[in-house]
Simulated assay, not measured.
Amino acid sequence: MDFKQWYPKDFILALSNTLTEKEVTLFLQKPGSSPRFVYGILMLPTVLKYYIDMDQAVEIDKSMTQATLFGYQLYQFADSSPPVIVRSSDPKAVVDGMLIFNLNERQRNSIYELEGGLMDLVSAQVEICEEDCRGERNLRSVEAGTFAWENSKEGLISTKTTSWGIDGFLNSPFYENIDRAQRRTSLESSAPGGVCRPARMLSAVERGRRGSTSSLLRRYRASLTSIYEGSETHDT
């Protein structure tokens, strides 16, 4: 997956991050923190931190790395909709995305709340690049959870690419709103006398900004919901 210089700094850092063999092993050995493979908006650290209630100052990009998922293909419901992945019979089918390590149960559940309404959580093998003790880079296969579309492919449009084109989303009001909210919350927590709050103990300000983006979130999921309901009607 290529990146462009105007991409958000934390996204570039995540795309450029190569974990060491030791780091990957320690992440995988940590109880209750199985990795997640993402291929849509959650590839962006700022968006990911927003949905898992993590402070913007946390360098989650250090726990992320590029990854390739085998046996799946990317689809969309429309040109502007978020992507979904579908199992493929093509042995060469791959999807490029990001692998996220070191997520706790609450954070993984937050991702499930976003993705699990229409898609199913599946276990899959992904391949990442890691660096050994000699500084050499090697490929490593890792088992991870990801969300896949398990229903009929009718109505789906193949992207004919291995990775989702994220540029349009980065220029959308949806991303701008999330980025602005994260920056505001980070400034509030770093101000003199500011207190770092536990992730789930939201202040009135935070609850307000969640409400301000609720309509955007509904629009984000609307394309999936309408197609899902339409396919159910068609099948019956």
Rank of each mutant, 00 (worst) to 15 (best):
N102C: 08
S81P: 03
V94T: 15
L103V: 05
D79S: 15
I128F: 00
P91F: 06
L121E: 14
E115I: 04
V94Y: 09
G135E: 10
L103E: 07
Q125P: 04
V94I: 15
S89M: 04
L118C: 06
A124H: 02
M119Y: 00
F101V: 03
A93P: 05
E105M: 03
V86Q: 04
E105R: 08
E113D: 12
Q107E: 15
Q76S: 13
E130P: 01
E131A: 04
I100Q: 02
L74P: 15
C133E: 15
P91N: 08
V84Y: 03
P83I: 03
I100F: 02
E113P: 00
Q73Y: 04
Q76I: 12
S81L: 04
D120E: 13
V122T: 01
Y112R: 06
N102L: 07
E131N: 04
S81Q: 06
D120A: 14
F101D: 01
A93S: 14
I128T: 01
N104E: 09
E127A: 02
Y75S: 08
Q76M: 11
L99H: 07
V86M: 07
C133Y: 11
Q76V: 15
L99I: 15
G97A: 02
N104Q: 07
L118K: 05
D120T: 14
R106L: 12
E113H: 09
V122Y: 00
R108Q: 12
R134Y: 14
L74W: 14
A124N: 01
E113M: 10
R106Q: 12
V122N: 00
I111D: 00
Y72S: 03
E127H: 01
A124L: 00
S88E: 04
S123G: 11
D79H: 12
E105N: 04
P83W: 08
D120L: 11
S89W: 00
Q73P: 01
R87N: 00
N109E: 11
G117I: 04
M98W: 04
E130M: 13
N102A: 14
D90K: 00
N104P: 07
L99F: 08
R137S: 14
I128K: 02
Q76P: 05
P83V: 06
P91S: 08
C133S: 14
P83C: 06
N109S: 11
S80R: 11
A124D: 01
I128N: 00
D120M: 08
S123T: 12
L118F: 15
R87F: 01
D96I: 07
Y75F: 15
Y72V: 03
V126R: 07
A124T: 02
L118V: 09
G135S: 09
S80Q: 11
D79L: 14
Q125R: 13
V95P: 05
F77D: 08
Q125T: 13
E127T: 13
E105W: 02
D132T: 08
